[in-house]
Design a protein around this nucleic acid. Structure first.
Ligand SMILES: [Zn+2]
Ligand SMILES: [Zn+2]
Ligand SMILES: [Zn+2]
Ligand SMILES: [Zn+2]
Lengths: 159, 159
DNA sequence: GAACTGTTTGAGACTGAGTCTCAATGTACG
DNA sequence: CGTACATTGAGACTCAGTCTCAAACAGTTC
């Protein structure tokens, strides 16, 4: 709820209108951990079917510009989005079979990244760091993995 | 040339035919460092316009299955492919403005990755680690970056 | 609250990257 | 050669995402 209020303010501060559609997209995005754009479209339209697909994409792009949402390309299936606003920085570990995603933090890696870019005189802007593997359960039951995104888990209901 | 011979053998060993189209795609792929699928299509068709787009994609997929080619999603522009066969493992640093890609190695990061997955009982299969930033030159000339892939550099002519 | 103005929207056409279909061609092998 | 299967070229198709544009909306000025 705190994040919700905060992001609404961010939207206003950016000078664009805080419309019902943008609020709805924000609320539904906050209700998930990792989601694809199309999952979000469906989810939003389940609440209000009159919202256009393009509006969801536009709102998502706005949230991305505001630094509220990040885009992750886990290689297996469509890109995922995540509301990272207010969350500590983390990287991801994904099971290529069942699609489970684990968020982890490793400050030692982050320090090495800074050191690496210094070698080349670069100014570091962002990074992606994703580990792919088999979770303990899938290590036993070996099957060819599906390219489908894992089912959406609703993790939180925001008002 | 060594790689060329080796991969040809890989293709034969896989039990599929080593056709002229597959050889051509392989030769053109080996001539580049990082390239998009559509760049490769164009490049192949410049040599032999009768080769179908689908054939290039099919050959690329085959090379990928054989572990010869890797797919990189640098976030800026279309995914890139790279012939990694015979190259030491490396990760990438990209300038988000001019598109320059630097390959780097950092064994300390790789060690930490192994350590991280152990925490969660995962079996590590692969990873992506990409750093994005501004190269020294672009740090001076600040412009909004284009989403286009950087121009193709022919780095080597394979027979 | 009517008129004016710029913003946002819904609907659906469009795009680009990649895949699929299928008839035609190529290759292997008896 | 003839049969059997692999591969191909051409183009239709898919899917995620973007664009267009007229209509609806939200402020702002009177
Ligand atoms: Zn990180
Ligand atoms: Zn996350
Ligand atoms: Zn690495
Ligand atoms: Zn590389």
């Amino acid at each position: 709820m705190k994040r919700y209020i905060f992001v609404r303010q961010l939207i206003r501060d950016r000078g664009v209108r805080l419309t019902a559609q943008r609020e709805l997209v924000l609320r539904r995005a906050l209700a998930h951990l990792h989601f694809t754009a199309e999952q979000l479209v469906e989810d939003v339209r389940r609440v209000d079917p009159s919202v256009a697909r393009a509006s969801v994409y536009r709102a998502l792009a706005l949230l991305h510009e505001l630094g509220v949402v990040e885009k992750h390309d886990f290689h297996y299936g469509a890109p995922n989005y995540e509301v990272t606003e207010g969350k500590a920085h983390h990287d991801h570990l994904m099971c290529t079979q069942c699609g489970e995603i684990i968020e982890f933090q490793e400050p030692r890696v982050e320090r090495l990244q800074a050191e690496i870019v210094k070698r080349y005189g670069y100014q570091l802007l962002s990074h992606t760091h994703k580990l792919y593997g088999l979770c303990p359960a899938c290590q036993r039951t070996q099957k060819p993995h599906s390219a489908k995104p894992p089912a959406l888990h609703v993790t939180e209901m925001v008002s």
